[in-house]
Design a protein around this nucleic acid. Structure first.
Lengths: 221, 221
DNA sequence: CCCGTATATTACCCACGAGTAATAAGAAGT
DNA sequence: ACTTCTTATTACTCGTGGGTAATATACGGG
């Protein structure tokens, strides 16, 4: 069925490695199922029995992979967070104007929000995490917010974005994007990609300092 | 202290009325305390014992005013909803371009979001309501969303707003506004009014079809 | 002054679901 | 085949908190 047990491979670690991989796959399967159920029914209404049932196992089996329900919640959150942070890292590695970076981040973040793990960043209540994990989550949120703000103010500096209140502008953009996590449906009329590219244009529409926009500003001034 | 017991009033219904009013005030006090606690700790972490404690009463006393915890939640939601719907009614009663109506709604909605009851529209999980109340909440959300869409498409028709994807534009605006409910703090640097007026301008900035904007559109075309 | 109603309290119930033994089954290695 | 480690199951505990029954107290009206 698959190449998970390549008996032809003589390496004595291979069987071990393959078992580890199977384990990780199961862990991921749990997370995927859990996040779906959490999103469908809400974290508290969703029970671990329910999660287990969907996986055709029983609740205690889950405890081979996770220590507690809130740990599952946290790891769902973490996967969504990771994806966004990877996106930020990629943007930071490249170059471009503040505006182009901002657009990339908007696009990446929008795509994230259209996924289950991404939506968990905004659909779950941070109070359901342990105190320690709440701190981690807050720090993560901060880093993302900071990235947005950095790109905006960078854009203002390099002239690609017209002067604006960085904080409020960021809030407005992030808000629009977060909302995707609440209304997006995979079976809807709009694909995630379409939304992402639309938003990356639309949300920066009034922000870009084009030649034409410059003219207007000067006219007004 | 107050005129709640006007013994000078001969009307036999007056005492009754005054007691009703006291009752309603207590009901409201419960809701105010409850919504605060729900927002602080999350609906599930917050207990009715906790709510009662803050009011210097005990849990069963709450059941003189509400049938269940989720009824309290619902009424908090309803108060926030009502406020927005009042705003919509007011706008619909007056006249103006689609753009000016949209700006009024943005302003009103932003102000709402900066209040506890308004924030409850977006901070609480609809799954914590009864099936019946979920339907009511969904219908309410729909009405608000529809108002936004109506004003936008009205604006496009009357020429105050430049042609755009009504649905996505609305989502973007509503998203920005809803996000206020998550980050606004009463003791923060920005007042609710400042945010509301800022957003009413900023969110419609790229939307308004000014003469200058018209020129750009024609240039591009 | 007494009665009836509204409103509060104390003391309880109990459903629910997270988490935990105790234990069985299955595969890997020898 | 025997052992061992992993992974799963059955059957259970138990804390929590929403909700209730019985009851006390305050207050306005006759």
């Amino acid at each position: 069925m698959d190449a998970r047990h390549p008996s032809s491979d003589p390496s004595p670690w291979m069987p071990f490695a393959s078992r580890r991989r199977a384990r990780d796959e199961k862990r991921e399967a749990v997370l995927r199922t859990a996040v779906q159920l959490f999103l469908e029914q809400g974290y508290h209404r969703a029970t671990l029995n329910g999660v287990a049932e969907r996986l055709n196992i029983t609740k205690p089996a889950l405890y081979n992979y996770f220590r507690s329900k809130d740990e599952i919640l946290f790891e769902c959150w973490a996967l969504g967070q990771e994806r966004v942070e990877d996106c930020i890292a990629e943007i930071d590695a490249g170059n471009g104007t503040g505006l182009s970076k901002l657009r990339k981040l908007i696009q990446g973040y929008a795509l994230g929000m259209a996924s289950d793990f991404g939506a968990s960043l905004v659909r779950f209540n941070s109070h359901d995490l342990t105190e320690a994990n709440q701190k981690i989550a807050r720090a993560g949120k901060r880093r993302i917010d900071q990235a947005f703000r950095n790109y905006v103010s960078e854009g203002v500096k390099d002239g690609s974005i017209k002067p604006c209140d960085v904080k409020l502008t960021t809030f407005a953009i992030v808000g629009s994007l977060n909302w995707i996590g609440h209304w997006f449906k995979h079976d809807g009329a709009l694909s995630a990609e379409a939304i992402a590219s639309q938003f990356s244009v639309q949300l920066t529409d009034g922000l870009a300092k084009t030649r034409a926009a410059k003219k207007i500003t000067k006219k007004k001034a």
